[in-house]
Each structure stands twice: as C-alpha cells, then as structure tokens.
C-alpha cells in the first residue's frame, strides 16, 4: 500500500512545477497550461484526502475543479485568440502596451 504522504508530495511537486512554468515560460499558451498543471496537482490532493477521510466529497471537488478548469480554458483561450489578433504575438514580454 502507498503512504498518503507520497500522493501529497507528488501533488506538491506537480503544483510547484506549474508555478515554475508560470514564472519562467514566455508563451502565453504554455503559461496557461502551467496553470492547468497546478490545478491537476490540486486534484490529486483532493482525491488523496478523500481516501484519507473516507469522504467522497473530495472526489466531488475534483469534479467542480474540472468544470472550472474547462470554463477557464474556454475564456482563456478566447482571450489568447483575441490578443493574437491584436498583437500577432504570444510572447508575454511583448504584452507591454500597459507599462509605467
């Protein structure tokens, strides 16, 4: 059997990878994917905790997270398309119309 903490550490690693991706990636789409990776890491935590507490609600949360992720994806990708139309680039460093 697998210790609960292993799952949680795995989830923390995935979350941290997501955060790193958010910070170091330059392509908007990849940045957005990093956010999805973070959410996935959280999902693993939820399911692991659900097993720990013998509470199905943990799995239900994953369900909600997925819905939210889907909604975010729809909106986010639409924004990305819109910005590509306007700026012809996906590099965040060039999203610099609004600076001090």
């Amino acid at each position: 059997m697998v210790p609960l903490s292993y799952y949680l550490v795995l989830s923390a690693i995935l979350f941290a990878c997501g955060v790193t991706g958010f910070l170091i990636k330059r392509n908007v789409i990849t940045i957005f994917m990093s956010i999805e990776l973070m959410l996935n890491g959280v999902n693993l935590s939820f399911v692991a905790f659900a097993a720990k507490w013998h509470a199905l609600s943990g799995q239900v949360f994953v369900f909600f997270v997925m819905v939210v992720a889907a909604a975010e994806a729809a909106v986010g990708l639409a924004i990305i398309i819109a910005i590509y139309r306007a700026r012809e680039t996906l590099n965040v460093d060039q999203m610099n119309l609004l600076k001090l």
């Binding site: 059997m1 697998v2 210790p3 903490s5 923390a12 910070l23 799995q59």
Partner: peptide, 30 residues
Amino acid sequence: GIPGMLMGSVLVAWAVLHSYGQDEVVAGAL
C-alpha cells in the same frame, strides 16, 4: 520565483510528511 517556489514546495512536502508520515491509504477503500 523559483527559489521561493522550491522553498514553498519543500515546506508543503515537509508539512505533509510531518503530518502523515507513513500513514497508508488503502487503495480502493473508497
């Protein structure tokens, strides 16, 4: 960001290990 993130994840991992240690999850228990 990256050092901070690393520290954060190490902290979480430590907290998790500290809290649950080797408590095992029974797969399929639920």
